[in-house]
């Protein structure tokens, strides 16, 4: 092997920001997501109307100065409901993804590294949960627990963590026999230190990609469960619940479903672009991934 020259080093380790900019789809996805995040953060302070205020005399209004996107079947401002609902939808999604990662990573790490009976038991649970289509299982669990915000999140976390645990375990199984891990053991590292210092960094980027791709499906499950009446309860604005509300007026006022539907599509698309772009970017630096 030849010594690496200064130029060689530069091309092997490009500035991560440069890398981000060089991927147009990643950049577009990030821009789309930031725009929604901004709306969800500042929206509630800027909305022209109270999102919960019912005004039966102004039902199903077309867009006007007072109502930028018009009103729904109860005379509530659609724009205000969308902007405030963004916070609910994105907040729940972030919480669910966070919980799923916080459960899935340790379970996968311990299962893969410890092996033996503990691994067998944990993977039996994972296999059992993964056998069901996740959407069906989420509906069943949410239906069993009863409609509430906490139960909604619980049911999604329950069906989602298993995939993370399995991916993490797979990576740990292949990494634990590599010589840098063996050398760390010979050097006196405890199992705990090997897990957090040597194995955890190896799994962070794959898990990040998985999470980015999952944001879309989590939003869809939240919206679908709300649509089925198992999620966010009326009159609180949430995109899936708004979609549900608009259902009866689909023939005459399709915009009641079009606006929340587009908002969901926008975020799902953004997250998928980010997830795909991240995966490509990681693949370039680490072809084994």
């Amino acid at each position: 092997m030849k010594p690496v020259t200064a130029e060689g080093k530069m091309s092997m380790f490009p500035n991560p920001v440069q890398k981000w900019v060089r991927k147009p789809l990643l950049l577009i996805g990030t821009g789309m997501l930031i725009s929604v995040l901004l709306i969800s953060l500042v929206g509630p302070f800027l909305v022209p109307n109270d999102p919960l205020a019912v005004n039966m005399s102004e039902r199903l209004q077309p867009p006007s100065e007072k109502y930028p996107l018009g009103t729904d079947h109860m005379g509530r401002c659609l724009f205000s409901r969308l902007a405030v609902g963004a916070q609910t939808t994105l907040g729940i999604t972030a919480l669910v993804i966070f919980s799923v990662i916080v459960i899935g990573i340790p379970v996968g790490l311990i299962s893969g590294y410890a092996g033996g009976r503990l691994d067998a038991v944990l993977m039996r649970i994972v296999d059992g949960l993964i056998a069901f289509p996740e959407f069906v299982l989420a509906i069943a669990v949410a239906g069993f627990l009863g409609p509430s915000l906490i139960n909604l999140m619980l049911s999604i976390v329950l069906v989602k963590w298993v995939r993370y645990a399995r991916v993490v375990r797979g990576i740990v199984l292949s990494e634990r026999e590599k010589e840098y891990v063996l050398a760390a053991r010979v050097g006196g590292c405890s199992s705990w230190k090997i897990l957090y210092r040597h194995l955890l960094p190896q799994i962070l980027s794959p898990v990040l990609v998985l999470a980015a791709l999952d944001v879309g499906t989590v939003i869809l499950i939240i919206s679908s469960l709300s649509y089925l009446g198992l999620g966010i309860q009326p009159p609180n604005p949430e995109w899936g619940a708004m979609l549900n509300d608009g259902r009866s007026y689909f023939q005459t006022f399709p915009e009641l479903m079009f606006y929340p539907g587009s908002a969901i599509l926008w975020v799902v698309l953004a997250c998928n672009l980010i997830g795909d772009g991240l995966r490509d970017a990681i693949h370039e630096t680490d072809p084994t991934f």
Partner: peptide, 8 residues
């Protein structure tokens, strides 16, 4: 190559 942690 395998015996050194690539990230450390």
């Amino acid at each position: 190559t395998a015996s050194l942690n690539p990230r450390l």
